[in-house]
Design a protein around this nucleic acid. Structure first.
Lengths: 97, 97
DNA sequence: TTCATACTTCGATAACCATCTAATTGATGT
DNA sequence: ACATCAATTAGATGGTTATCGAAGTATGAA
């Protein structure tokens, strides 16, 4: 019964980890951009910010690590989607303070 | 008429600055502690965290700089109070994303 | 005025991390 | 198979900053 059921259910956001991830101003800008659109490609993102592909890759990995975005390979490309669920859980935690 | 009216009114929180301030895990812990109580003294705070007075002073100044706390001298002591208004404005900004 | 307490400021150090370039992996097209 | 393009990984570097100890500044008490 229980125990195994934590896939789509809670997953409890790591507030501190997200805080840290958003602590970098560039990363927050990038997230804002992602959240604004529906689903963006890395390359499209790169045209918006004056950073190298390596750096963008790094930032997206960080955002993915804390559950704020999904990265899905699409052939040569990678699609980035905002995980609004995580964001809402994060906000809910902050509201407790 | 208008123009001058920005004292107690808006004051527009600097989201990026707050992000950065909360990016440090210790600082977030400290803020949590402050927000939990009514009004705490520096010394009381120091008993909760294994850091020197110098470091605590530094963190409180950062939190004050972004408007998250008020520091008021009280004789030899300093009282720290959570500025819930700033916090709510901050949350409101985050919700927009 | 002298002492002790509470905090701040200064200067130095160490750790962290954003960023870059270069090299690599992986996918598509010729 | 080869070339090209997208993205990741690896390694290096520089800037930022959390942290400390020590010296400085108030403040209140003796």
């Amino acid at each position: 019964m229980a125990v195994k059921r934590e896939s789509a259910a809670k997953a409890a956001v790591d507030v501190q980890a997200i805080n840290r991830a958003l602590g970098d101003p560039r990363r927050f800008e990038i997230l804002q951009h992602i959240a604004a659109g529906q689903c963006v490609g890395c390359s499209a993102l790169r045209t918006e910010f004056p950073i190298t592909a390596a750096t963008m890759s790094h930032h997206l990995k960080e955002l993915e690590a804390v559950g704020l975005v999904d990265l899905t390979r699409n052939g040569k490309f990678v699609d980035v989607t905002f995980r609004r669920m995580t964001w809402q859980r994060y906000l809910a935690e902050l509201k407790k303070l």
